Simulated scan of single mutants.
Amino acid sequence: MKSVLLSIMVLSMSSNVFSQQQEVIHLWPGKVPGEREAKQVAPATPDTSRGVIRLTDVTDPVLQVYKPAVRRSDAAVVVCPGGGYNILAINLEGEEVAKWLNGLGYTVFVLQYRVPKKPAGALQDVQRAIRLVRSRAAQWKITPSKVGVMGFSAGGSLSARVSTQYDKPTYTPVDAADQLSCRPAFAALIYPAYLDNGTNRTITPDLKVDTNTPPMFLFATADDPYANSALVMAGALRDAKVPVQQHLYDTGGHGYGLRPGNPAAEVWPGLMAKWLGQIIPTIK
């Protein structure tokens, strides 16, 4: 009975998540590049374990806009939820994170990128998302040069990819927004995955880290099976002399978001908030 009640509560939360949004931005006004399926509102899977809403079959990528009640910064963050490139943990690593960042005074855009198993489409989506946010910066009173990205697990992989492949053309330009850069001003990778797919668990070959890679905040735990991803990325950033702050906590596992009760979830938000306060003033 408890599991049934939880499922009902989560599904109710799911409908509220979308009804309460001030604005939803569709990334692609016409055909979605490389997408064969018709555009649709992404459905939630029946799996509501741990109170997580899992979206799947994203064929019409969107940005959900979260405006802070009190704007304390002219910076903005595009948030990429995780889910193994199969689903999007849209409340755990999207809505809840957006509301936390809103509380710090930041404008936030939660990205529903294409899943399942569409990493190439996901990169197109995040590139387009950053450009769109920059093109409409005046609307939200943000500075175009201060649009960063943040991701969890597979969303951390996607954030790393756009941070190192921002100069890679992945789609035919749609409008004037696509003339803008999609290089994030900064990136935060929380328990990122898939960054160590190189030989002997070295950095994934298509992650080309150089002096133009944006500064990064990395957080993982020693008991996370994907923890090596953060380690190899930190090493690559250090070698390229890119500002990087890395934290490896002892316990916490993977996929905890910022929900209370997990030791890692109770640590990283304070560390990242401090880092944002330090790094954003340095961005011109």
Rank of each mutant, 00 (worst) to 15 (best):
V267H: 12
G253T: 11
A264S: 14
V244Y: 00
P263S: 07
E266V: 08
V244P: 00
V267Y: 11
H247R: 09
D239S: 12
Y249M: 13
N262K: 02
Q245N: 11
D250P: 04
L231A: 11
R238M: 09
V267L: 15
M233S: 01
P243E: 01
V244T: 02
A234Y: 05
D239I: 06
V242R: 00
K241Y: 03
V267K: 15
K241F: 06
G253D: 14
G252T: 07
A264H: 03
G261H: 09
L248V: 15
P243Y: 00
G235I: 01
P263Y: 05
D250R: 14
P260V: 07
Q246D: 06
Q246W: 08
V267C: 11
H254A: 11
G257N: 08
H247F: 13
T251P: 09
L258E: 02
D250N: 15
G261Y: 07
L258W: 10
G255R: 07
A240S: 05
V244K: 00
Y256E: 10
N262L: 03
E266C: 06
P243L: 01
G255A: 09
A265Q: 07
G235T: 10
L248F: 08
G257D: 10
L248W: 03
D250A: 14
G235K: 13
V244E: 00
T251H: 14
Q246S: 15
L258G: 06
A234R: 11
D239K: 13
L237K: 02
P263T: 06
G257A: 06
G253I: 12
E266L: 08
P263G: 07
V244M: 01
G257M: 05
A236N: 04
K241P: 00
N262Y: 07
D250S: 14
H247E: 08
G255Y: 10
Y249R: 07
P260A: 11
M233P: 00
A265H: 03
R259T: 13
D250F: 13
K241S: 13
V244S: 00
D250E: 15
E266M: 14
G261Q: 07
L231E: 12
Q245Y: 02
H254C: 07
N262G: 06
L248M: 15
R238K: 11
R259P: 05
P260R: 09
D250H: 15
L237R: 02
G261R: 05
M233C: 03
E266N: 08
A234Q: 11
A264P: 01
R238H: 14
R259N: 12
Q246N: 09
V267T: 13
R238A: 09
A234I: 00
K241R: 14
G252A: 11
E266W: 05
H247C: 05
D239Y: 01
G252E: 11
E266A: 14
H247G: 06
L248P: 06
L237E: 02
A265C: 06
V242Y: 00
P260H: 09
Q245L: 08
A236P: 04
H247P: 05
A264R: 02
Y249G: 14
E266I: 04
G253W: 09
K241G: 04
G255C: 11
V244A: 01
G235A: 12
L248I: 15
Q246K: 10
